[in-house]
Design a protein around this nucleic acid. Structure first.
Ligand SMILES: [Mn+2]
Ligand SMILES: [Mn+2]
Ligand SMILES: [Zn+2]
Ligand SMILES: [Zn+2]
Lengths: 138, 138
DNA sequence: TTTTTTGTTTAGATTGGCTCTAAGATAATA
DNA sequence: TATTATCTTAGAGCCAATCTAAACAAAAAA
């Protein structure tokens, strides 16, 4: 990670510890939408004393700064998205991989609802089978 | 609940116990998207010996028959929707109420993605503040 | 540089939603 | 009514996530 980026995080009010650096490096450009456990498993290689709480603390801090997003797309486990810009997702019901869909669908609610709701975001979740899993079919 | 409806559930292969009847009656026409706990709290009035496992077992059985849907819209807790027909949701970030949106937005993916994904369903989640919570603002 | 302050890391305990188990109960059926 | 398949129940157990408080370390101040 570049010195400028570290400085950038610091200016956001994040103390830069080696653990956080490792987590940030794992997340940077990662499109796998990892769970806290995925992140922990990866970082514990570098930091055998790493605690799960540190992973959660760091993710919470990053979320508050708007640097990552927390996804509730399957029950029982959060997944994290290092890309905070608005986009949508496809979830494979076989392998549970989460794919990004960068497409602006221009959804607008009918007038009646526009009065009722102040909408801040709109997220589309597609579900089905991915090409990879299709290929493995008999 | 009418005799015909009970017969209908029975034909689907569901043994109709008093506990299930109470759960079904609570769910019928319910648009609050209750959690398992909500359902349990309501039904334990009639059946003080009711077990949480029965709530989950029943919900699982109903889900398998396609009579209800399980929603993963907020972390850590499932919510259930007795309306299995495809529709979308608005979630209030203040009160966490879930509102139905019955509108066909005709979302279609660009060709590249259509090859990659076999899409079975498409669910839109709007987030923001509901009129009720807006009203309570200072 | 050294000191001080403030926020972070850690292990372990704890919580909360959910699932499993096995014994007893009961709806459906014959 | 007797049989059988399924359901209900209490309690144990599981797992993701959160909390706690002491040790620690980064950043700011001196
Ligand atoms: Mn994404
Ligand atoms: Mn609904
Ligand atoms: Zn797949
Ligand atoms: Zn609200």
């Amino acid at each position: 990670m570049t010195r400028e980026k570290i400085e950038h995080y610091r200016k956001l009010g994040l103390k830069m510890t080696p653990q956080r650096l490792a987590i940030l490096e794992y997340l940077e450009g990662n499109t796998s939408h990892p769970s806290a456990e995925d992140i922990y498993r990866h970082v514990e290689g570098k930091f055998p004393s790493m605690s799960f709480a540190t992973v959660y603390n760091t993710l919470e801090a990053l979320k508050e700064k708007g640097l990552i997003r927390e996804l509730s797309i399957e029950p029982g486990k959060k997944r994290f998205d290092p890309n905070p810009s608005p986009h949508h997702h496809f979830i494979c019901e076989r392998c549970h991989r989460v794919y990004d869909i960068f497409e602006d669908f221009q959804i607008t609610l009918p007038g009646e609802h526009q009065k009722q709701f102040e909408i801040k975001e709109c997220e589309i979740i597609f579900r089905g089978v991915c090409a990879d899993c299709k290929r493995k079919e008999v």
